[in-house]
């Protein structure tokens, strides 16, 4: 559906994105992840045909964004970082305008406006002026605008930024329902969001792809060891040292009173030895469990590791 080859974009002397290549298939839900300034919005702007690439090719549904830009734009719905809303317009009128702009046939305009009002639960506010709506509603109007012409591809740039937790959950649910019938590209710097919605993640850092993988893939390939969590009742001073002496254990750290984080070599399975030690010294095990690396850890690891060799 989307093919990107050697895509670069320069802002004057600054290279915003550098030689990106990836593909997105029909029906996929892909997350762009990266710190601020990593090139997420730039990539999305290029995908939405708002700015041309400096070099490389981008094809949307087979249409080149430079050569057949108008064709490509027909199958795209775009929600930029700041929803493009006219504050003096009424919600219904605005959606009608965007429908006509997106070349929805005139007799289907009413139906498609009704449809997105329903889908984004905007029915109650369809007669209100956009400028007076809360941020959450405005974001939903922005989303409604992106899906009004039922595009094959939805590009959503940080759709939940600036919303309160309840609104975030609502928008997330909406995106999840949309994911059933659309190809979605979503960007965020909030990690749990990506884990909940996307099946594949593209991690961008300083304009380059740091990793492309499925979520499970990312977590397993990046796990260079196992992490265990241990909680005991009777706190002693030398627990950390004792833990580190167990063969296979790389490091142990105190995380709180009686709580320890233990990093072990992959496949060392030090649980038995750990338990034995605890029993022998009667520390009193409260909890012993394996913890998976969270996406947050992966993210930090990737973006930091990238830097290390250069410095």
């Amino acid at each position: 559906m989307i093919e990107i080859e050697n895509l670069s974009k320069d802002y004057g002397p600054r290279r915003a994105i550098d030689n990106l290549s990836f593909q997105i298939n029909k029906g996929e839900v892909v997350g762009f992840l990266g710190p601020n300034g990593a090139g997420k919005s730039t990539t999305m702007n290029i995908l939405a045909c708002i700015m041309p690439p400096s070099s490389g090719t981008v094809r949307i549904g087979g249409h080149d964004v430079l050569e057949q830009s108008l064709e490509a734009r027909k199958i795209i719905g775009y929600l930029p970082e700041n929803p493009p809303l006219y504050p003096d317009m009424v919600v219904g009128e605005y959606l009608k305008f965007t429908a006509l702009l997106r070349q929805v046939p005139r007799r289907e305009v009413r139906a498609s406006v009704e449809h997105v009002l329903e889908a984004c639960s905007l029915k109650d506010v369809s007669g209100r002026i956009i400028g007076r709506l809360s941020k959450g509603y405005q974001q939903r109007v922005g989303l409604a605008q992106a899906m009004i012409h039922n595009p094959d591809i939805l590009i959503l740039d940080e759709p939940t930024v600036g919303l309160d937790p309840i609104q975030i959950i609502e928008i997330r649910k909406l995106i999840q329902t949309l994911a059933e019938s659309h190809t979605i590209i979503l960007s965020s710097h909030i990690l749990p969001e990506i884990t909940q919605i996307c099946r594949r993640v593209i991690i961008l850092n300083e304009g380059k792809i740091a990793a492309v993988d499925s979520l499970e893939g990312l977590t397993t390939t990046l796990r260079k060891g196992e992490r265990l969590f241990l909680k005991v009742r009777n706190v002693e001073d030398d627990i950390v040292d004792q833990l580190q002496n167990i063969p296979g254990i790389l490091s142990a750290q105190e995380e709180g009173p009686g709580e320890y984080r233990v990093d072990a070599e992959l496949d060392a399975n030090p649980q038995d030895a750990l338990a034995e030690l605890c029993l022998k010294r009667s520390w009193g095990i409260v909890e012993l469990k394996r913890t998976a690396l969270s996406l947050e850890d992966i993210f930090l690891k990737l973006t930091l590791e990238e830097k290390e060799p250069g410095e």
Binding site: C49, L70, P80, N82, Y86, T98, L101, R102, Q103
Partner: peptide
Amino acid sequence: NKTLPLLLSSPV
């Protein structure tokens, strides 16, 4: 108002 992207991303 940052509404220009709406016009620019439409098939117009």
